[in-house]
C-alpha cells in the first residue's frame, strides 16, 4: 500500500470567497511514485469526495503558458471533474499534450521564444489535443454538477451556476506552498483574460484561432463584465510579477508576441518596454482603455525600475482583484492522503 498525497480546497466558504465545488491539486511526481496512471489517481481521490469536484494534476518539472502567453515553471498534465464519487467515463477526464520543439513552432507561436531562454530543459505541456476531446468547443471536463473548464482554470457548478477562477499562476503557488490572493476577479482581469495569444494546442483556445494583439472577447464595453463577478484564487502579485519580468527579459513584445494584458503592460512600462500598438486591434485598445489602460497611460513617462524594485512594489504596480486578501497556501488548502 502506498499513500497518495493531494491538496484540496473543499466546496463552501474559503475566507471571504465562495468555492462552488471542491478543487483538488495533485503532483504528477506523487502519482508516479504510487505506480498509478493519472486517471487512476483522479478516480481514487474522486471515490472519497461525494460532492462535485475538479482535479488538476501538475508536472512541476514541465513548463506551459498562462493566458497572456507568459511561460511558467510547471504545467498541468491532466484535468478531471467528478460528482457523486465518480468521474464520467466520456467527459470527466482529459489529458494535456506535450508539444515538441521546432523552429516552425517558434515562428508560428513567437511567445514561445521564452522556452529555450527561460526553461530550456523542461517539457512543454499545453492544452488537450482537439482531436481527442469529446466536447466540441471548450477544453473542459464534466461530470454531473461539476465542470472543470479552460484547461482547469475555471471550475463551475452546473446547478447553482456559481464559478471559481483559478489562473494557472495561482495554482502553481498552491503546488509550491507559496502565496495566493483571494478576492473578486473584477473588471481589469476580466479584460486581461481576453488578451490572448495564438496556440495550436492552446490551453484555452486551440488552432491559433486568435492572433496576438487582438481581443478574444471583442465585445467592447461589455468585456469588463464577462468575468468580473467571479471569485478568484490568484498568485500573490509579487510572484506573478516574476514571471512577467522573466518573459519581458527574453525580448517578447506585448501585443505582438505576448498578450497586452493590464498586468503585462503595467510591468512593461516600468521596464521601458512599449507594446506593439501597430499590431493591436482597435477593439483590444478600446477594451483596455475602458478599464483605464489608455494609450496615454501605457506610454506615460513613469519611473524606470529594476526587477527587484518591481517585485518589491508588485502590489502597487499590478492592477486587478477586487477586495484582495493575501494568504499563505497553508491557510487555503488542506493536505490529505489516501491509501492506494
Amino acid at each position: 500500500m502506498s499513500k497518495l498525497k493531494y491538496k484540496i480546497i473543499p466546496e463552501g466558504m474559503l475566507h471571504d470567497i465562495f468555492v462552488p465545488m471542491s478543487a483538488v491539486f495533485i503532483d504528477y511526481a506523487d502519482v508516479k511514485a504510487c505506480n498509478l496512471t493519472m486517471r487512476e489517481a483522479c478516480e481514487k481521490i474522486a471515490a472519497t469526495i461525494p460532492g462535485p469536484a475538479g482535479y488538476n494534476m501538475f508536472d512541476m518539472t514541465a513548463t506551459t503558458t498562462n493566458s497572456d502567453g507568459v511561460m511558467i515553471d510547471g504545467s498541468m498534465t491532466c484535468m478531471a471533474a467528478s460528482d457523486y464519487g465518480k468521474i464520467n467515463k466520456d467527459f470527466g477526464y482529459l489529458e494535456m499534450v506535450e508539444v515538441p520543439y521546432s523552429e516552425e513552432l517558434i515562428k508560428e507561436e513567437p511567445h514561445l521564444k521564452q522556452w529555450k531562454k527561460s526553461y530550456p530543459d523542461r517539457r512543454l505541456i499545453m492544452g488537450p489535443d482537439p482531436k481527442v476531446k469529446k466536447i466540441p468547443i471548450h477544453n473542459a471536463t464534466l461530470t454531473g454538477r461539476a465542470g472543470n473548464n479552460n484547461s482547469a482554470t475555471e471550475m463551475m457548478h452546473y446547478i447553482t451556476m456559481e464559478e471559481l477562477l483559478l489562473p494557472i499562476t495561482g495554482q502553481i503557488q498552491i503546488m509550491k506552498d507559496g502565496k495566493v490572493e483571494l478576492g473578486g476577479t473584477g473588471y481589469v482581469i476580466s479584460v486581461g483574460i481576453g488578451m490572448v495569444v495564438g496556440e495550436e494546442y492552446g490551453r484555452i483556445v486551440p488552432h491559433r484561432q486568435f492572433k496576438c494583439g487582438t481581443s478574444a472577447h471583442n465585445s467592447g464595453e461589455y468585456a469588463k463584465f464577462l468575468k468580473s463577478h467571479i471569485p478568484v484564487i490568484a498568485a500573490d502579485k509579487s510572484e506573478l510579477v516574476k514571471y512577467i519580468i522573466q518573459a519581458l527579459q527574453t525580448g517578447v513584445i506585448p501585443g505582438k508576441d505576448i498578450g497586452a494584458s493590464p498586468a503585462v503592460l503595467s510591468v512593461a512600462r516600468h521596464m521601458g518596454i512599449l507594446p506593439d500598438f501597430d499590431n493591436m486591434t482597435q477593439a483590444s485598445l478600446d477594451e483596455l482603455a475602458d478599464v483605464g489602460f489608455t494609450k496615454e497611460w501605457i506610454t506615460a513617462d513613469v519611473e524606470k525600475l529594476t526587477p527587484e524594485e518591481i517585485i518589491a512594489r508588485a502590489h502597487e504596480i499590478i492592477p486587478g482583484i477586487d477586495n484582495p486578501k493575501k494568504y499563505d497556501v497553508s491557510e487555503v488548502v488542506q493536505v490529505k492522503y489516501i491509501e492506494v
Binding site: 465518480k86 471548450h138 464534466l142 461530470t143 454531473g144 473548464n149 452546473y158 446547478i159
Partner: peptide
C-alpha cells in the same frame, strides 16, 4: 453561443 450542461449523472446517481 456554446452552452455547457450537467451530464446524465445528475439524473441517475
Amino acid at each position: 453561443i456554446n452552452i455547457l450542461h450537467p451530464t446524465e449523472d445528475v439524473l441517475i446517481h
